[in-house]
Simulated scan of single mutants.
Amino acid sequence: MTADALLGPALVEEATKKSGLIWVRGEVAAARPLWHVWHDGAAHLVGDGPGEQPLPGLVDGGTAEVTVRSKDKGGRVVAWTAAVREIPPGTAEWDAAVAELKGKRLNASDGEAMPERWARECRLVRLDPRGSTTDLPDGSLAAAPLPSPGITRRPVPAALPKLLLGRKRRR
């Protein structure tokens, strides 16, 4: 077995474990950042329910491209191809993955009832690494932001400097 064959899976596992977000591109959707947990040799994601992250393009039996960023610097570390598999609720595999995910879920409104809500309303997806790593792109993958009414570039109101700086006080 070559060094690349051994180092590729180890790099995928270590980088994915340490990163809080992974960028996932499904079969038909654009890449998007998703929170995850590395458990039992694969990345696990929960979503597609009310108040949870969307998982567009991640279909059972499909593939996905995963790019992992550095937790320290934010740059791309490794990219890998994953086999997508949806885990049904009520199985031992689902229970084990949800136990790991529950500890990493921030700002959950329902606390201890979260696993039951996930079973009713969400999907649990497992991303299994396939083979070795893929080549990282040379250029930037930055995309223009989508149009939105929430913009920040507007003229400063005339009264704002006076409000912020105040008037000089006389003694």
Rank of each mutant, 00 (worst) to 15 (best):
M1F: 07
M1C: 08
T2P: 08
T2M: 02
T2G: 14
A3T: 11
A3Y: 12
A3D: 14
D4C: 06
L6V: 10
G8M: 04
G8H: 13
A10K: 13
L11C: 07
A15E: 06
A15Q: 06
A15H: 03
T16A: 15
K17P: 00
K18V: 02
K18E: 12
K18S: 12
S19I: 03
S19N: 06
G20R: 15
L21D: 12
I22M: 11
I22E: 02
I22A: 11
W23A: 14
V24T: 09
R25G: 10
E27V: 11
E27A: 15
V28H: 14
V28E: 12
A29N: 10
A29G: 10
A30K: 15
P33W: 05
W35I: 05
H36V: 07
V37A: 15
H39K: 11
D40R: 10
D40S: 09
G41I: 10
A42P: 07
H44E: 01
H44R: 04
H44A: 09
L45A: 06
G47E: 03
G49N: 04
P50V: 11
G51I: 02
E52K: 01
Q53G: 03
P56D: 04
V59P: 00
V59K: 09
G61T: 06
G62Y: 02
A64D: 04
A64I: 07
V66K: 03
R69P: 01
S70I: 06
K71E: 08
D72S: 13
D72M: 03
D72N: 04
D72G: 01
K73F: 12
K73Q: 09
G75A: 13
G75Y: 14
W80C: 00
T81C: 01
A82K: 05
R85P: 04
E86L: 12
P88W: 03
P88Y: 03
P88C: 05
P88D: 09
T91R: 02
T91M: 01
A92K: 15
E93H: 04
E93C: 05
E93D: 13
W94P: 01
D95P: 01
D95W: 03
A99E: 12
A99D: 14
E100K: 15
E100C: 05
E100Y: 02
G103Q: 15
R105K: 08
R105T: 13
L106Q: 15
S109L: 15
D110Y: 15
G111K: 05
A113L: 12
A113M: 08
M114R: 15
P115T: 05
P115S: 06
R117E: 13
W118I: 07
A119P: 02
E121L: 10
R123S: 11
R123V: 03
R123A: 14
V125N: 11
V125K: 04
D128L: 14
R130L: 14
S132G: 15
T133Q: 07
T133G: 03
D135R: 11
L136Q: 04
P137D: 05
G139M: 01
A144H: 01
A144S: 09
P145I: 09
P147L: 11
P147D: 13
S148P: 03
S148A: 12
P149R: 10
I151R: 14
I151N: 09
T152P: 00
R154Q: 13
V156S: 06
V156H: 05
P157W: 00
P161F: 02
K162G: 11
G166Y: 09
K168R: 15
K168W: 10
K168C: 05
R170T: 08
